[in-house]
Design a protein around this nucleic acid. Structure first.
Lengths: 362, 362
DNA sequence: CTGTTAGCGCATTCAG
DNA sequence: CTGAATGCGCTAACAG
């Protein structure tokens, strides 16, 4: 079968312990023996058995990364940056961990299953990205899993997901939260300042944290502008909220629904940029122009947003930065933020898809 | 520390061997003892140690997936479908492998490094996706790595990458190739049939297999239309080929370069849809209209392509199907295609971004 | 600096 | 059907 440490040791005429020392470079070894060992390793094409090493040393080369959808660039960007950090070091001893990307599809069950699988592999760290399902049962189940993982020394980082209240201090759990609420608020303020009053909102799945935060920011802005739910315009705004998935098709369908409810909407805010594309498509198919007839705004500022036509007004989240930071944190190469929670600022990007409402439609 | 098999055995009042048998369900165990063991497992929150199991049984729960760019939906779609197949089965014994997604960034060195890392982890399978760098040295190095992996029982699947000639038979290596050449040819035929003669081509990186195949298809079409390199129009077409990366910025820059070389191009074919977005942006910024002044075509038919404005004419590759199939193959759940190589057909999708050239510009 | 000795946690013989 | 014993390949004390 495969060549083992013992084979290398025999060939180099040393003990297997010495070979191990040379390989790990964590212990003094004479230069000449080191050379001999290295030559033997090359001649035999030896590759360490990670599992045996992990078992003996109680360490692991795996970092689990849970994402809701690998095919979504939102997660791709985070994962890519994260991997750049943890993968650095290649085959050198110490550096070079492998990212186990787990695609939950937003399913709470899948999330729990993957956490178990990762616990089984004794992952060195786990990063949970993106919105979480806000159900008491699921939060409790996740907290329980994370508690066990943390107890066994697995480093845990939440990225783009709100902190797990009960667990911060006791578990040393680290969170990189996105300021979704603030970004959403500024976005809607922007629309209000342009003069929009009949603003549709295509929200994400109802039970997700990100959905809720963005929606809250939106409503805060309306309230601050004197459009509380008790006012006529405010009540209308509530009627103009449609929930759907974080995908293009949802944006398309939701927009048709919005237009059915009120043909006079002058602006539509989407759950994210992908949804916004669907919104744009539906508007165009309905014979409406952007932003002439209806303004459209997204969220996330994914790379394609600047290329949309017109370019999409959106809220930028520094996903790469956040992913890289999560990577450094899960590797223990960076000090955690005070309190274990860092909130990443979001930035309003005003582009061509938003403009003052046309007098004719107001 | 963590609870082990022995702990469970002690609690259930049986031997650890019996616990192992219950857990793996591959050996007869009395119903009553089975129940007792299962209760003990739950009471203790026992989770098997994957590394120890792997070491003892010489098996692995990991499947490596090499991609050039996780943030690119092209790979995201493949990875997502693939994971759906290999992850099925969850925590049940037998099913539920974990995908280790390795982001090579298109770097040959990174590819080799990851293959070593995966060999180290004794991965159960490895899937290499997307274009490969066509250098003799790299091909040889990859072949050597794959040979070793295959020899140690790792199942290997190539997805969206041309077969490795020398290795097919001897290694039982499986390839799912995309018909890039045929798709590219039909795409250019479409432009020719619309009347275009001055067609720019924004190609991918020069040394990549996919780049080469698509470019060859393009030139085949030109040749078949009597526009060989010896003709005036054909020679011009050669001048109108610019290489760049598979990203949006490359498309943008390359388009500006194309317009510098020939302000009269009536159509531009892009390396892929992402590049095509950059092409569109550059054209618009140059005051040209699509398809009125210049037609644009992409490749891959990524989800956003239908939402571009105008919707992008492109070549569809059934990425999800291919990814799922790769998943089944690497799991050994599906018979390999005859000869070890399957070629996936591609389909021309004609949309709004291509139209006959305007008389004024011809 | 180097060799010897124990396990790491589990699956799997081989007996009973 | 069940238990005891052995070893997977490697690292980590512990001696020299």
């Amino acid at each position: 079968m495969a060549v083992t440490l013992a084979d290398v040791a025999a060939r180099a005429g040393v003990s297997s312990a010495t070979v191990s020392r040379v390989l790990n470079g964590n212990y003094p070894v004479a230069g000449s023996t080191k050379d001999r060992v290295q030559r033997a390793v090359e001649e035999l094409d030896y590759v360490v058995n990670g599992q045996a090493r992990a078992l003996a040393a109680a360490t692991s080369d795996l970092i689990g990364v849970l994402v809701n959808d690998v095919a979504d660039p939102f997660f791709g960007l985070i994962a890519s940056a994260l991997q750049g950090e943890i993968g650095a070091g290649g085959t050198q001893p110490g550096g070079g961990k492998l990212a186990v990307v787990c695609n939950t599809g937003g399913s709470p069950e899948a999330e729990l299953t993957y956490l178990t699988l990762l616990e089984r592999q004794r992952a060195a760290g786990v990063v949970l990205t993106g919105s979480t399902v806000e159900s008491k049962a699921h939060t409790a189940a996740v907290t329980a899993r994370l508690t066990r993982l943390a107890a066994s020394g697995t480093r845990i980082v939440l990225c783009g997901r709100p902190p797990l209240e009960q667990a911060e201090d006791s578990l040393g759990l680290i969170t990189i939260a996105f300021d979704n609420r603030g970004g959403a608020r500024r976005l809607t303020e922007h629309l209000l300042s342009l003069g929009h009053r009949r603003i549709g909102y295509v929200a994400g799945p109802a039970e997700r944290s990100t959905t809720r935060h963005r929606l809250e920011g939106h409503r805060e802005a309306l309230l601050a502008a004197g459009l509380g739910p008790d006012t006529r315009a405010g009540a209308n705004a509530l009627r103009l909220t449609v929930h759907g998935g974080y995908d293009r098709a949802s944006g398309y369908d939701a927009t048709l629904e919005l237009l059915r409810r009120d043909t006079g909407v002058t602006a539509i805010v989407a759950a994210n940029d992908t949804v916004a594309l669907g919104v744009c498509a539906a508007l165009r198919d309905s014979g409406l122009r952007i932003p002439g007839d209806v303004s459209v705004a997204g969220f996330d500022d994914l790379p394609f947003s600047v290329d949309a036509s017109p370019a999409l007004t959106t809220v930028r989240i520094p996903l790469q930065d956040a992913g890289a930071r999560a990577g450094r944190l899960v590797m223990g190469r960076q000090a955690p933020p005070p309190g274990g929670v860092a909130t990443v600022a979001t930035e309003l990007m005003v582009r061509g898809s938003t403009a003052p409402p046309s007098p004719g439609r107001r």
